[in-house]
Design a protein around this nucleic acid. Structure first.
Lengths: 314, 314
DNA sequence: TTTAATTGATGCCATATTGGCATTAATGAA
DNA sequence: TTCATTAATGCCAATATGGCATCAATTAAA
């Protein structure tokens, strides 16, 4: 191991916040980190970290080294990617992250097929419902609902993801079929709620083309769309759900779209996110495979919703 | 050894032109280079060099990698230098190159003193009369007569280096003392001549302030100023010599300045050259030590020439 | 043409480096 | 206080590196 690798190790230690966490993400022993950072300090002749036994802070020199280490990682990444552009056959490790539902339902089938076509490519899939740092964790590709804020990343829209209002037949029997959107105000709703986002109404466009929001009476909140759908299947709530979580519940008649003649606001599409312009062959091919699988015009999941092309358009 | 080091190794191989030469400058076995380059190609998954048994050429991928490797070397260098700026005490290796005469006569005494003051600093001195590539060979500092052309380097004038016309007393006995510069045309001269520079006259400024050149009759040419001086000491030639090669020949009366009332053209000064703005402590200190040793106003060597401040000024 | 010298590749081996385990000391939280 | 967690250290096995000898290919010299 040489100075560059040690600098990258230092960067990882600082990014992760401790020697132990850095060791964990690298799957090596802490002692290795400890020894290599010490060695780096010896080589550079400068103390980089002020250590206590349970934490550390950066010295001035350390802070500068971190910046440089980050530049080095960037440049080294570019270099390796440049080399990868010369591969005719894809190889290497394809590191992907996505939310659990996207990964399980839409990526996994594509991965299975992809690795049959390209056995040389290893795949590492990290399902995580909170965002991860693509750059520092070295991901090639992320799939997310909603455009990411980090403008240093590149996001491409993969498929639209429209909304529906759904209820089970049992719910309709109990509460009657709502005929206009205002009827929803008294009906029990399941709604998405997390630390970052809390849905408290249904946004739609009225007959005059103006954006409106209909308040809802949320009786069940969760930060997992599938859980909300499950709740709705039990007949005790209706739900505002994105199309991409629908399986065959509608085809089987277990869920019914409500108020299909109102016009719902466009919902965040599914995006693919990657950290730099020039993708390695394996990433480009996987990207294409996903787009193929999800469909060009009509997303795959919309085929599970008969007549969806005429719904919620006003 | 990791990818970065291997890329730097590749760069060195390409710059030196062969595995063998790269191995030589690194003082390692050729087999190491061969193995590491192969390893690099495996890791990147790309052939970088088209090899025959006795030479190689870069592939397209190789050429791109070389560029990146060069950027990496630059960035890594900056990083290490940044760390070195935090040293309070100088340490590390000070790599210096100069012409033989400058090194032996003017650097060596300073180095001796410098290493007494800073025992932690190792010094590597390369005496070479032809220019070497500071960047690729990793030199901290070079001392040269004449401003270097490479504008990516930084050059600072260390000391002026005026010219004299010299002859031995024996020469004067034989040929008489020349009273005006035109007299030189018939007198045998020793003159500098190398593949890059051939001195064929003496440039001076006439009474009207106009630049003139007096042709000389060169009977002995060499590409080494000391040899020319030695020849002149034998009494068979006169010579146009830069002041910095004078020892105590004039003080001892073994050489006499001729035609001291003409005005000679300014000659190339001695320059210190370094490859980047922010010098490590050891380099800055050595630089200062050299300037101290050579003198602020009057260069050290001019003290060997009594009355020089009044000579050759017209 | 033959011979000699040089180049990069390869196999083998001694040595140096690395990474894992166990232990220790220090620190902060419960 | 006790307990869990952290980084440092010493020891050992596994791995990687660099040097040597050798080989095959190629070029230059005789």
């Amino acid at each position: 191991m040489d100075t560059t690798s040690r600098l990258l190790m230092l960067l990882e230690v600082v990014e992760r916040g401790s020697f132990a966490k850095a060791a964990e993400t690298r799957n090596i022993d802490r002692s290795v980190i400890s020894k290599q950072i010490s060695r780096l300090e010896d080589d550079l002749g400068v103390r980089l970290l002020n250590r206590t036994t349970r934490s550390f802070s950066l010295t001035a020199a350390g802070a500068e080294m971190i910046k440089k280490a980050s530049e080095l990682r960037q440049l080294l990444g570019e270099t390796v990617r440049l080399a990868e552009n010369y591969h005719q056959e894809p190889r290497g490790v394809l590191k992907i992250t996505s939310s659990t539902i996207i990964g399980r339902r839409y990526l996994q089938p594509v991965i299975n097929d992809f690795q049959k076509r390209f056995p040389q490519v290893e795949v590492e899939l990290r399902l995580d419902d909170k965002l991860v740092d693509l750059v520092s964790e070295g991901f090639d590709l992320a799939f997310r609902v909603g455009e990411p804020k980090d403008s240093s990343l590149i996001a491409r829209k993969i498929a639209r993801n429209r909304l529906l209002i759904l209820a089970a037949p049992e719910f309709i029997q109990t509460y009657g079929l709502p005929s206009k959107i205002e009827d929803l105000i008294d009906l029990p709703a399941a709604s998405y709620s997390s630390t970052s986002l809390r849905v408290e109404g249904i946004r739609y466009v009225d007959q005059y083309g103006l954006p409106q929001e209909q308040k809802i009476k949320s009786v069940f909140r969760a930060n997992d769309a599938e859980v909300l759908l499950d709740k709705t299947l039990s007949g005790t709530t209706y739900v505002l759900a994105p199309a991409f979580i629908i399986n065959d519940e509608i085809k089987q008649g277990r869920l019914v779209p409500l108020l299909t003649d109102i016009k719902l606001q466009e919902y965040s599409a599914m995006y693919a996110v990657y950290p730099h312009r020039d993708l390695p062959v394996r990433t480009r091919l996987f990207f294409d495979a996903i787009r193929d699988h999800l469909g060009k015009e009509t997303p795959l999941w919309e085929s599970n919703i008969p007549g969806f092309e005429h719904m919620y358009l006003g």
